[in-house]
Design a protein around this nucleic acid. Structure first.
Length: 722
RNA sequence: GCGCGCUUAGCUCAGUUGGUAGAGCAACGCAUUUACACUGCGAAGGCCGGGGGUCCGAGUCCCUCAGCGCGCACCA
């Protein structure tokens, strides 16, 4: 008997050893599997690209969940004999990484402008490299069967070529344009961000009502009101029927009298406040739209550091936060303050990464036009290209109801602002010389050309991920074989950020979908339902701690059972402890079977008696059911069924029954045969879920040649790939 | 305001086209030189959020109300 079997199962020792064994086999790489004759060269392909973790530190439970689900899909496909590729990579995560490094430098008393762009980027790259190494090691600890030989980075050379190629094509097609538009300026991060990178926070604040000539107007932001010279009301509002559209009046305002113009527009909600408002076109999306409509003047009030400009008169140079009360005070002494509502709840737009309060501004930036018709794509717009494959079910979203959320987002989509005023990222491939603009893959040789200072939104490069990782823009064999990818598995929180952008890019650049199915998992929560965010500190579960305590297999089971697509999962340690018991149960049952069948001629198995044959057929039925559940992405149910069968049928009934048969020597051979075949099949169907313990037992049972790993064993049901 | 979910045993959640309510954990009773106490056997526990409808039949489909969560928009 193998010595290991004399001791209880020790996941800690086993898991790292087993992962090395897998890596050494090379079977994570489908090319190796073909070379060694494990997989047919014409087998059906199966591919997943790993959603690349940001190089901003450690893996958290969300990553762990993603790795578990994708590893299950991958291992299942590989065992089915498919040409299986799970492609790893990391994301440079422009803003997130840069701001992290900025914070670290701050602790050393260094500001990025002190050391300059080049030196700063060196620091970021060092940090990114370190994070990358940690992440890769953690992914390996999780047992992820990723093909490391194909690893990619969103900011490496090949991906940079893909980004430039994509940018140029979109530029040439007029889909990327530069223009003065209303953007979301983050004064803290000193960059613009896209609509999707904004988080709205409800904050209780004051709502002021001021006298504005004959009207009363309300505002939560008095500091923006200096330039307000248009006063808007609804054309049907009887209270103001005597005032005419475009009528001019003189009103006393913050810094003296100004000439105001009356605007009548249906945008006004007559029920809200007094039904009258003034507008600030430079600092509000809606006011901007109104100003465009009536060709009104626009004036900047706040600069990009959040300070008031000379238009504010005596308040110029003050930070808006400091100026507010003083402005109100002045209006009060002038007798223009009507009332203050202290209980006004405002939704404040803040930047996802820097937490800075967004200040809408008109700025010269680069945008992707989502509405322009594209001749090379049947005159469809990017919006339509994103919409169609989901609507026509070419891309299946699991769970399906997220489709509606997706459509809703597309309907409200505005042009995508892709330029960022940060240093870390793909530099915009555009050069300027006087009034000339050049966009291309190569830097112009003439030194007078100056490259655009900005970098691209990180999601621009992530959008190319399904094909940039496979070698695009080159027409590689990988691209031909593995694209469109089979499944894209990720959290539902990045449906818009990422999934939508991948569909956009793939549809436009390749004319095909990026993936056939999208599997959206829920967010992991703590046992009391809180989000597992960094702010939780010690209360957050660190997947690596869990693995140390209970083993990876136990964590995997806890993350899969009870976890259905789209729904959040409360992870509690008690459950994980329970699944640790399960791995031990498997270990002990195997120990018994191995001992009973050690001097067994596996090539010459006797027939089963009637009772055992019935059990055999029951297992066949189970295998068929499990396969169906797996094919339909119901991993939770599949795992639960196997768990239940192993424990309460195989261990509690079949093994117990066999003891009697063996002891009484009645049909003992039949019993042993059943034990042997059952264990073999059960280990295989358990393997995608709990790869380590099953591989370890497999190695003890077999003791054949070194290539005989359960990770490439044939799934115990017939299919076309074998 | 518009949209999307969730509400099932004490807790965490399954429940695929409608056909007699399920699991894990917890709690309860019994057993125990067994591959395994990281065990076994047993019993208990639910007007499936409220109301209405369709149907021979509804946890499941439709309407409606409520509580919770999330997304989007508006917020002068």
């Amino acid at each position: 008997m193998d010595e290991k079997l004399l001791k209880p199962y020790d996941p800690k020792e086993t898991e790292s050893r087993i992962y090395k064994l897998w890596e050494k086999s090379g079977f994570f790489n489908p090319d190796v599997c073909i070379e060694k004759g494990i997989i047919k060269s014409n087998a059906e392909p199966f591919s997943i690209v790993l959603p690349p973790p940001n190089v901003t530190g450690n893996l958290h439970t969300g990553h762990a969940l993603m790795l578990v689900i994708e590893d299950i899909m991958t291992r299942y496909a590989r065992m089915q004999g498919k040409k299986t590729l799970w492609l790893p990579g990391t994301d440079h995560a422009a803003i997130a990484t840069q701001s992290k490094v900025e914070k670290l430098l701050e602790k050393e008393g260094i500001r990025k402008n002190d050391i300059g762009r080049e030196e700063f980027l060196k620091r970021v790259e060092k940090y990114a490299k370190d994070s990358h190494d940690i992440i890769v090691n953690q992914a390996k600890t999780m047992g992820a069967s990723l093909d490391w030989s194909r690893e990619a980075f969103t900011l490496d050379e090949k991906r940079n070529l893909a980004v430039k190629t994509a940018f140029k094509q979109m530029y040439d097609d007029g889909l990327i344009y530069r223009g003065n538009r209303m953007v979301n300026w983050d004064p803290k991060g000193q960059t613009v961000i896209s609509d999707d990178e904004i988080i709205y926070e409800e904050k209780k604040g004051k709502f002021y009502t001021f006298k504005y000539g004959p009207f009363k107007i309300g505002t939560a932001r008095p500091e923006t009101k200096f330039g307000d010279k248009y006063v808007v009301m609804h054309p049907d509002d009887k209270r103001y029927k005597d005032w005419k559209h475009m009528q001019k009046i003189t009103v006393e305002w913050i810094n003296g009298p100004i000439e105001a113009t009356i605007i009548k527009d249906e945008i006004i909600d007559m029920e809200f406040g007094t039904g009258v408002m003034t507008i600030t076109p430079w600092h509000s999306h809606e006011d901007f739209a109104l100003a465009e409509k009536y060709k009104l003047d626009k004036e900047q009030i706040i600069d990009k550091y959040g300070k008031l400009l000379p238009i504010a008169g005596e308040f110029a140079g003050m930070k808006i936060g400091d100026a507010r009360e003083k402005i109100v005070e002045k209006l009060k002494t002038k007798g223009l303050l009507v009332s203050i509502d202290e209980n006004y709840v405002n939704r404040v737009a803040t930047a996802e990464r820097s937490n800075g309060v967004i200040e809408p501004q008109i700025m010269l930036q680069w945008f992707v036009d989502v509405n322009k018709k594209i001749p090379s794509r049947n005159n469809k717009s990017l919006k339509e290209l994103m919409l169609e494959p989901v609507r026509d079910r070419k891309i299946k979203i699991i769970p399906e109801h997220f489709k509606k959320v997706y459509f809703h987002w597309i309907e409200n989509l505005r042009d995508w602002c892709i330029s960022r005023q940060i240093w870390y990222g793909h530099r915009i491939p555009v050069w300027y010389k006087g009034n000339e603009i050049y966009c291309g893959l190569e830097t112009p040789t003439d030194k007078e050309w100056k490259q655009d200072e900005d970098t691209l939104d990180t999601w621009f490069s992530s959008g190319l991920w399904t094909f940039s990782t496979l070698g695009w823009p080159e027409k590689t064999k990988d691209l031909k074989t593995y694209h469109p990818t089979s499944v894209l598995e990720t959290g539902h929180d990045i449906l818009f950020f990422w999934i939508a952008r991948m569909i956009l890019m793939s549809q436009y650049l390749l004319g095909e979908i990026p993936f056939k199915s999208v599997y959206l998992h829920g967010m992991i929560r703590t046992a009391d339902g809180k989000k597992m965010s960094k702010s939780l500190g010690d209360k957050a579960i660190d997947p690596l701690d869990i693995i140390k305590k209970y083993g990876n297999d136990a964590l995997r089971m806890a993350m899969i059972i009870g976890n259905t697509p789209g729904n959040d999962l409360k992870l509690n340690e008690n459950d994980i402890r329970g699944y640790k018991k399960f791995t031990n149960k498997i270990w002990n049952a195997s120990r018994f079977v191995i001992e009973q069948t050690k001097d067994f001629d596996i090539l010459n198995l006797p027939n089963l008696d009637e009772e055992d044959e019935k059990s055999n057929q029951e297992l066949q039925k189970l295998v068929a059911e499990i396969s169906k559940e797996m094919d339909e992405f119901r991993f939770s149910i599949a795992a639960e069924k196997i768990y239940h069968y192993f424990w309460h049928t195989f261990a509690d009934i079949i093994i117990e029954r066999s003891k009697i048969k063996i002891l009484k020597n009645q049909n003992a051979l039949s019993a042993k045969t059943l034990l042997y075949t059952h264990l073999n099949i059960l280990l295989k169907i358990l393997h995608p879920f709990i790869p380590f313990v099953t591989e370890e037992i497999w190695s003890i049972i077999k003791k054949r040649d070194k290539d005989d790993l359960i990770m490439v064993a044939k799934w115990p049901i017939k299919n076309d790939n074998y």
